[in-house]
C-alpha cells in the first residue's frame, strides 16, 4: 500500500498507458511552461542565497512544473521526462544536504557550519559556501517528494 503501483512486483498485466487530459491548449502550454518553470525554480533557488527564496520554494516550483506536465501528457510520459525515479531525487538531495554538513564536520567544525570559499566567486550569487549545497539538497528532496505525491495520486486516480 501507500506506494506507487509501478513499484509493486509486476505480476498483473500492464494497464493501458496513463494518458493526460488530451487538451491541445494544455498540451501546448505545458510544453512551453515546463522549461520556463524549471528555469524559474533555479532562479528562486539561487536567489535564496541572500534574499527570500531558496531550496524549499524552488523545489516546490519545479515539482509543480512536473505536476503540470503530468496533467497534460500523463504520468507515464512525465516519468520518462524526469528520466530518474523520484526516489533517486530524494536520495541524491539527502546525500547532498548531508554532505554539506559532513564537509564542515571533516574540517573540525560543528555539523552544518557554513564554510565559505574565499576564492570561488560565482557571478549571480557571490561567494560559494556549503549552505548553498544544503539548499541544492533541499531542492532535490522537495522535487522528489512532490513528484512522488503527484504521480502516486494520479496513477491511483486513473486505476
Amino acid at each position: 500500500m501507500i506506494l506507487p503501483p509501478s513499484e509493486q512486483p509486476d505480476n498483473t498485466p500492464t494497464p493501458a498507458p496513463l494518458l493526460g487530459l488530451n487538451s491541445v491548449i494544455l498540451d501546448t502550454a505545458a510544453r512551453a511552461l515546463l522549461p520556463l518553470l524549471l528555469l524559474f525554480s533555479i532562479f528562486v533557488l539561487l536567489r535564496g542565497h541572500n534574499d527570500p527564496g531558496g531550496g524549499f520554494v524552488g523545489g516546490l516550483v519545479a515539482g509543480s512544473a512536473f505536476a503540470l506536465h503530468a496533467f497534460a501528457f500523463g504520468v507515464q510520459q512525465s516519468r520518462e521526462t524526469l528520466r530518474f525515479s523520484p526516489r533517486l531525487f530524494m536520495a541524491a538531495g539527502l546525500l547532498i544536504a548531508a554532505g554539506s554538513g559532513i564537509y564542515s564536520l571533516l574540517l573540525g567544525h560543528p555539523f552544518l557550519k557554513g564554510i565559505w570559499s574565499e576564492t570561488v566567486v560565482l557571478p549571480a550569487i557571490g561567494k560559494l559556501g556549503s549552505p548553498f549545497f544544503f539548499d541544492v539538497g533541499v531542492y532535490f528532496v522537495v522535487i522528489g517528494v512532490v513528484v512522488t505525491f503527484i504521480f502516486t495520486l494520479f496513477e491511483d486516480a486513473n486505476n
Binding site: 513499484e7 526516489r87 533517486l88 554538513g101
Partner: peptide
C-alpha cells in the same frame, strides 16, 4: 570527539538513503 554526537544520526540516515537507491534489491 564531539563528532560522536552527530554520528548516531548520520549513520542511519546515510544507510537509509543508500537503501533508497537500492530499492527492491
Amino acid at each position: 570527539m564531539t563528532y560522536l554526537l552527530i554520528l548516531p544520526i548520520l549513520i542511519p540516515m546515510l544507510t537509509g538513503v543508500v537503501s533508497l537507491v537500492f530499492w527492491t534489491r
